[in-house]
């Protein structure tokens, strides 16, 4: 589904991603961990096309298409969803209005009729229940005055409404209490399917207790320095990131070889 090859990216002229290669297949869940500032959110921003993130090298293929050539809204309509680390507040726009515009833009892209207000509300209420979100949120301005946890819940609610193919969850667990963590995880797990993939960015094993990842990657200074199975996350939780550093040289050259092999004319 997603093929990232030797991805380099800059922000404000500063190199942040320094050669990321990653394959995510349909049905898989990949956990991405790594110290603060290692580039996890930057990767999410590059994949979703945020302005100001400049790809200097490498390629990203999504469902056989050149993802980097697409506008942010096209990527979203094709099924790329980002649960924001810091969801944005939009005073004056109700959550329902916002989400109806989003759902209908995606439906239109797939040749489906727009949902009318009634059908939309019915669907929204159904999905809100799934993540234990109070219906009254629909009438409130998008994220305005929401608590940190409520904002994250709203992100997952939006994901269940939009049913993306690839969901990138950027620290969706931060700010959640134990109960909220469980309901949000349930919402995420309910979305798991053989056609859908997820990239779960987190610092904590506690989320991965609920959402079982197939693979774990550790990002450091803009590179994936270690990849492994679910046990890698447990190791990180127990030992921190320090122990990987010694290993990173090996990790690097391994990846460098892969990167060289796939670089091709794009770079």
């Amino acid at each position: 589904m997603l093929k990232i090859r030797n991805l380099h990216a800059q922000v404000d002229g500063k190199d942040i991603l320094k050669g990321i290669t990653l394959d995510v297949k349909a049905g898989e869940v990949h956990a991405v961990m790594g110290p603060n500032g290692s580039g996890k959110s930057t990767l999410a921003c590059v994949l979703t096309g945020r302005e100001g993130y400049v790809v200097t090298k490498g390629s990203v293929e999504f469902e056989g298409q050149d993802l980097l050539a697409m506008a942010p809204e096209e990527r979203a309509r094709e099924g790329v969803f980002l649960s924001f680390q810091y969801p944005v507040e939009i005073p004056g726009m109700s959550t329902a209005y916002f989400l109806k515009a989003a759902v209908n833009a995606v439906r239109k892209h797939h040749g489906l009729d727009a949902l009318d207000a009634m059908d939309f509300l019915k669907l929204a209420k159904e999905k809100a229940k799934l993540v234990h979100m109070d219906e009254s949120f629909l009438n409130r301005s998008v994220n305005e005055g929401f608590s940190g946890g409520e904002k994250k819940r709203n992100e997952i609610f939006q994901m269940t409404m939009l049913e993306p193919k690839l969901a990138i969850l950027d620290e969706t667990d931060s700010g959640l209490d134990v109960d909220a963590l469980r309901t949000v995880s349930e919402g995420v797990n309910a979305m798991r399917s053989p056609e859908r993939a997820m990239i779960v960015i987190t610092h904590y094993q506690r989320l991965l207790d609920h959402i079982k990842a197939d693979m774990t990657h550790v990002l450091s200074d803009g590179r994936i320095v270690k990849s492994g199975g679910p046990e890698l996350a447990l190791e990180v939780e127990a030992k921190g990131y320090g122990w990987i550093a010694g290993d990173s040289q090996a990790g690097h050259s391994e990846l460098a070889k892969v990167a060289k092999a796939v670089e091709g004319p794009a770079s």
């Binding site: 809204e73 924001f84 944005v88 939009i90 916002f98 515009a101 759902v103 833009a105």
Partner: peptide, 14 residues
């Protein structure tokens, strides 16, 4: 700019 990106990331055109 953040609000713009948030909306576009949800599929709403520019």
């Amino acid at each position: 700019e953040e609000s713009m990106f948030y909306m576009r990331q949800r599929g709403v055109g520019e």
